[in-house]
Design a protein around this nucleic acid. Sequence first.
DNA 1: CCTGTATTTGGCTATTCTACCAAATCGCCA
DNA 2: TGGCGATTTGGTAGAATAGCCAAATACAGG
Lengths: 106, 106
Amino acid sequence: MNPKDRSRYEARAAVLKSMAHPTRLYIVEALSGGERNVRELTDRIGADISTVSKHLSVLRNAGIIRDEKRGAQVFYSLVVPCVLNFFSCVETVLDERAREQAGWVR
Amino acid sequence: MNPKDRSRYEARAAVLKSMAHPTRLYIVEALSGGERNVRELTDRIGADISTVSKHLSVLRNAGIIRDEKRGAQVFYSLVVPCVLNFFSCVETVLDERAREQAGWVR
DNA sequence: CCTGTATTTGGCTATTCTACCAAATCGCCA
DNA sequence: TGGCGATTTGGTAGAATAGCCAAATACAGG
């Protein structure tokens, strides 16, 4: 793989990697219903607020979400809604895998 | 987040994680053109064959690809083609990010 | 200006990844 | 059966992650 291709795939992988964590996936889905502030997300997730804040910055740096400060609060929202389409395909993968294991027909 | 939701998001994240690596993304795209054996993939990627083999097993365990042994060779192919749809959305993310940085309009 | 609330940042540890080399397996065929 | 090409597996060092706590920063009001 030449350097140009390599960096292209690295950039793509970085985007997927930013979503490849249970908490961050949860955040993405939560934001599909509209913007949320850090406190709301933290309450739902049930982890330390500093942990959630770091997950949010991972997603923001990847360009998946953006932040808007209003007063003392910071509201996050989805920048690229098409990432929500990933969910159905991921479910397909999981279903397919379950079927494989159950049937063992191959 | 309750345990049930948590494990659901963990399963989903595991699927994304299996693709969140430049080499593995490259493999997925390479397999969109049909099955390939380990040697072919290794030649294109330019890493140690044992490294490629391990990447392949990550994707196989996730249920994204499957292997079929024919003679001494092992051919890999895509199980769930919908993952190819991820690429266009990922490009959208990258484009959006590039635009942000260029324009600085916010 | 001082306090309280909201969020981010720094620091640290435990865990997980990744890549390579070496060694083990697997299937074919001389 | 012995050797060969193809692929996987075991081992390991180094890099990257994730989570928590403590401390820093940012804002709104009083």
